[in-house]
Amino acid sequence: MEEEIGASVADVGLPEALRAALDDLVTDPEVARRSAQPRADARSEGGTRRAADLIENMLV
């Protein structure tokens, strides 16, 4: 695709913008507050191990 438009992702500043957006997300106390209950719910249901087991069972 780079050949088609003559630019790469790095040329348009996407890595920096993505890094800044992710930093804003992971350091936002409101995001942490809103994420607490779904995180607790997921853990009480078996967490990532259970999720992986459910997905694997669907694939076989």
Results as ranks from 00 to 15, higher is better:
5 I>A: 04
33 R>M: 12
52 A>Y: 05
14 L>C: 10
34 R>D: 13
7 A>D: 00
9 V>A: 09
22 L>P: 00
29 P>N: 05
47 G>M: 02
9 V>T: 13
17 A>F: 01
25 L>R: 04
34 R>I: 13
58 M>H: 06
4 E>T: 05
18 L>F: 09
50 R>V: 06
28 D>I: 11
47 G>P: 08
4 E>N: 00
53 D>I: 02
2 E>I: 13
33 R>L: 15
34 R>K: 15
26 V>I: 15
57 N>Y: 00
24 D>S: 12
25 L>P: 03
52 A>K: 09
25 L>W: 08
12 V>F: 10
19 R>L: 09
26 V>D: 12
26 V>A: 11
30 E>L: 12
41 D>C: 02
8 S>P: 00
15 P>F: 10
42 A>C: 02
42 A>Y: 06
10 A>C: 01
7 A>K: 14
20 A>M: 09
38 P>M: 09
25 L>T: 07
52 A>G: 01
56 E>F: 05
56 E>A: 13
10 A>G: 02
9 V>K: 03
24 D>R: 09
26 V>Q: 14
50 R>E: 13
15 P>T: 15
39 R>V: 15
46 G>T: 11
25 L>N: 06
32 A>K: 11
29 P>H: 03
7 A>T: 00
50 R>Q: 11
1 M>T: 11
22 L>I: 08
30 E>K: 12
7 A>R: 10
17 A>H: 04
32 A>L: 12
44 S>L: 04
56 E>K: 02
59 L>T: 07
13 G>K: 02
45 E>M: 11
12 V>Q: 01
44 S>K: 12
36 A>K: 10
18 L>E: 11
55 I>T: 06
27 T>I: 02
54 L>F: 01
52 A>R: 10
52 A>I: 14
55 I>R: 11
44 S>M: 08
45 E>A: 09
36 A>P: 01
50 R>A: 12
28 D>F: 07
55 I>M: 08
